[in-house]
Structures are given as structure tokens and as C-alpha cells.
């Protein structure tokens, strides 16, 4: 019974974190066919932004979380302007691989820039909730509850934005048929910019949550990003609801394996499962056919 509660707590918390990391990735892939390998570095950026604003400048934590979202969004905008825009125009059918390689480069640069600025020693970041409550004999930290709540709120907000607003419609239209979107008068390049900014903002907040569980380090985003890749692949790249479902489902399985077989087997078992799923369904569980960008 206690083990079950522990598994559910870990699974839900990690699921929330993975889901948040995944939807940022999946949003960008779905609308522009771009796999952002720098997504993990944006998570780290968000974590450090909270540290700088709240711990160093002493401003309130909620403001610092907003600053983290802002920093992520800004990084997304810069990424678009400096790298993605010209690749969209020139790389043609090589866009997918070119943009992956380019963002791997950006990711390393950003992580090492953070290392230069903040140093290598792990820092404790200010966002957090202490205390815990009990269910029967097991202890559930309030921090986990906060993480789940914040994730759900951010995801709901994003879902509303995408489904209900004019900007969201333009994003979906561009993802579903870029040429038609152009004919409707959608400034597609501006939509791409918005998508990267949105994804960056979500990544920033996700980085805050992730670093509240672990600690601040320039590579803090690497593990969530790796998991997020897996979730995206399982769900079928670009499928947002599928990605969220995959994130929670796989996080539960991972937590179960970790408790049953030991922590180091969580990810390997997950990967085996994913490979099996992909052999069965090469486009992921809920995958749709290739998106058209060009």
C-alpha cells in the first residue's frame, strides 16, 4: 500500500514534469517540423533565471517564475531570428536534420554559458514548498502537489490559447496546412516566432519545477529532455494530447520499475518499451502522417 502511494506520487510528479517538457517540444515539432535539441538548455535557463531574480535580486518568487518564462520565451525568439528563420528559407528538405544539428550546437553553447556565469557547483533554487502530508503511513511532500498543480495550470492555459484564441488558430492552421494558412493571410513566419516563444516560456517554467526537485546545474534539462523525446516519439511527434497521455503513462511505468527493480533500470525498461511500440507502430501510438512545412 505504501509502495503504491509512493509509486503514484512519483509517477504523477514526474509525469507532470515530463508532460510539461514534452508539450514544448511537441508544439514546435507539430507546427514547424523542427526538433529543438536546445529545449533542455532552455529548461536550465529557466531554472537559473528564477535563481537570479529571486535569490540574487531578492524579488518575490512568483515574479521570478514569470521571469523564467520570459527568459525562455526570449531565448526562443533569439533562436528563431538567428538560426531557424534562415534555415527555413534555405535548407529545404534538409531542414529537419540541419535544425537539429544547429540546435545541438546552440544547446552546448547555452549550457556552457550558464556554467561560466553561475559556476559548476550545484545551487539551491528558491522556488519550493516545504512540508508534507500523510496518507495512511506514507508521506507526500507538498512540493509534489505544487508541481502537479502548476504543470496542470500551465498545460490548461496553453490548451486554451491554442484552441480558443486567434493566435492559437493561426498556429494550428499553419501546422495543418502552411500554404493555406498563407492564403488566409497568416504571417507564417510570425507564427513560427510565436510558437518558439511559447515553447520557450513553457520550457522556462518547466525548468523551475524540475530544479525545485533536483538542484540547479547547467545540464539539469538533459534528463527531462531525453524523456520528453521518448514521450514525443511514443505519442507520435506533434500530437499534444497524446504527448501528455504518454508522459503520465510512461512516468507511472518508470516509477513502478524503479521501485520494483532499482532506480537505474527505470529508463532502460522505458526505452525497451518504446522500441517495442515503435516496431509495432512506426509513427507512434497516436501519430499522424508527416506534417507539411514546405
Amino acid at each position: 500500500m505504501d509502495i503504491l502511494i509512493a509509486i503514484i506520487t512519483t509517477g504523477l510528479t514526474n509525469g507532470a514534469l515530463y508532460a510539461l517538457a514534452t508539450i514544448g517540444l511537441s508544439l514546435v515539432w507539430g507546427s514547424m517540423g523542427m526538433l529543438n535539441m536546445a529545449h533542455g538548455a532552455l529548461l536550465a535557463l529557466g531554472g537559473y533565471a528564477v535563481f537570479s531574480v529571486a535569490t540574487t535580486l531578492g524579488l518575490p518568487v512568483w515574479l521570478a517564475v514569470l521571469a523564467a518564462a520570459g527568459a525562455g520565451a526570449l531565448a526562443g525568439v533569439i533562436l528563431y531570428i538567428c538560426v531557424v528563420r534562415s534555415l527555413i528559407r534555405t535548407a529545404g528538405k534538409n531542414f529537419e536534420t540541419s535544425v537539429m544539428i544547429a540546435t545541438v550546437g546552440i544547446s552546448i553553447s547555452l549550457q556552457n554559458a550558464l556554467l561560466q556565469v553561475y559556476g559548476g557547483q550545484p545551487l539551491k533554487q528558491p522556488f519550493g514548498v516545504s512540508g508534507a502530508f500523510r496518507i495512511g503511513d506514507s508521506v507526500v511532500p507538498w512540493l509534489n502537489v505544487v508541481i502537479i498543480l502548476v504543470s496542470v495550470v500551465v498545460m490548461l492555459g496553453l490548451a486554451l490559447l491554442i484552441s480558443r484564441t486567434r493566435m492559437g488558430r493561426a498556429i494550428r492552421a499553419t501546422a495543418q496546412n502552411r500554404e493555406a494558412a498563407l492564403l488566409m493571410g497568416v504571417a507564417v513566419e510570425r507564427t513560427y516566432l510565436q510558437v518558439l516563444a511559447l515553447s520557450g516560456a513553457v520550457a522556462g517554467i518547466c525548468g523551475v519545477l524540475v530544479s525545485s526537485v533536483t538542484q540547479l546545474s547547467p545540464t539539469l534539462g538533459a534528463d527531462p529532455m531525453l524523456k520528453a523525446f521518448i514521450m514525443c516519439v511514443v505519442a507520435g511527434l506533434g500530437n499534444l494530447p497524446g504527448a501528455v497521455a504518454a508522459a503520465f503513462g510512461l512516468a507511472m511505468i518508470e516509477a513502478g520499475v524503479q521501485f520494483g527493480m532499482g532506480a537505474r533500470w527505470g529508463f532502460p525498461v522505458l526505452l525497451m518499451l518504446v522500441i517495442a511500440i515503435l516496431i509495432w507502430r512506426p509513427n507512434g501510438l497516436f501519430g499522424r502522417a508527416q506534417i507539411r512545412r514546405m
Binding site: 492552421a173 493555406a180 494558412a181 492564403l183
Partner: peptide
Amino acid sequence: LLFPEMTVYENLQM
């Protein structure tokens, strides 16, 4: 070149 995953109404909105 409709937006295949949108409703008729959303297509008209676009």
C-alpha cells in the same frame, strides 16, 4: 487545402 483537423466553422473562421 482545408485545415483537416479543424471543424467547418473553424475553417470559415480562418
